[in-house]
């Protein structure tokens, strides 16, 4: 990629996630917690990735070997909060940006005009369009959270790393008279990472050596999805299984072909 197309930001804090695939059982608790936390409406129909709003989904990976050599793994996929997001620069109306400390890619629903250019730009399918107005069954709308506004049809949305939880953590720090920019590792954790029963999802500041993600992201077993594209995701994955790591990027497929 030509250098001019990269947008470089430097942030003091770089919120990041490290997901240990070898610990993910695909139980779906993160997906459920994400929907509840972020006011993503339920749909009585079976899940349709093409039309249903979703911020976090779990992919099932296969090593493509025959029984009994077969192996399977689960890969939860939030928004990658790319260091060099392919989505933000293309938005014609500045509805999505990567301009805030922490490096979370923002998505502003009342600004979005629904052109879907960002969706075309994102190779992770992290962005979804609201094809329908959101509907909760009668009474269930009482469980709407105050954290995220409901989105009308016609706008794009995506995972925010539960950005509101950072806001809340900063308020709490201010109330305690602490520096809101120096939070405890536990002060700000997205809903998916908080509920994960096996602790597969780690979260923290990738720049802060005191945070576990700082270390995990540098593990020899760490990889990011589609690193070859230059998106520089802030979501890392861990797996000790070679075949899983190879499925993180197309680079390996190419090499495999060369070797064979």
């Amino acid at each position: 990629m030509s250098e001019s197309m990269r947008i470089h930001h430097h942030f003091e804090i770089r919120w990041g996630m490290v997901i240990d695939i070898d610990k993910c059982t695909g139980c779906g608790a993160c997906v459920v917690a994400c929907q509840a936390e972020n006011n993503i409406p339920p749909n009585p129909d079976p899940f349709d990735r093409m039309r249903d709003p979703h911020w976090l989904i779990v992919y099932k990976l296969s090593n493509h070997k025959k029984f009994p050599e077969h192996d399977t793994a689960y890969l939860p996929r939030p928004c990658m909060q790319c260091g060099n997001p392919s989505c933000a620069s293309v938005c014609p109306v500045i509805a999505t940006t990567k301009d805030e400390e922490g490096g979370i890619v923002s998505q502003i629903y009342p600004r979005c005009i629904g052109c879907r250019y960002c969706m075309a730009a994102c190779p992770y399918h992290s962005r979804v369009f609201n094809w329908f107005d959101p509907v909760w069954p009668e009474g269930m709308d009482k469980t709407l959270t105050p954290f995220v506004s409901t989105r009308p049809r016609g706008v794009v949305e995506k995972c925010t790393f539960c950005h509101h939880r950072w806001q809340i953590a900063k308020e709490e720090a201010r109330k305690r008279g602490e520096n809101p920019m120096h939070l405890d590792e536990q002060a700000y954790i997205p809903a998916c990472a908080e509920v994960c029963p096996t602790g597969a999802i780690h979260f923290g500041d990738l720049h802060n050596p005191e945070h576990i993600v700082h270390k995990l992201a540098r593990s020899p077993y760490a990889f990011r999805i589609l690193e070859n594209l230059g998106t520089e995701p802030q979501v890392y994955y861990l797996s000790r299984r070679d075949w899983v790591r190879k499925q993180g990027d197309n680079h390996f497929r190419q090499e495999e072909k060369k070797n064979s």
């Binding site: 620069s89 600004r111 052109c115 250019y117």
Partner: peptide, 9 residues
């Protein structure tokens, strides 16, 4: 609210 970086703009 144009985004000057966007080709679409």
């Amino acid at each position: 609210h144009p985004n000057v970086h966007s080709m679409l703009t």
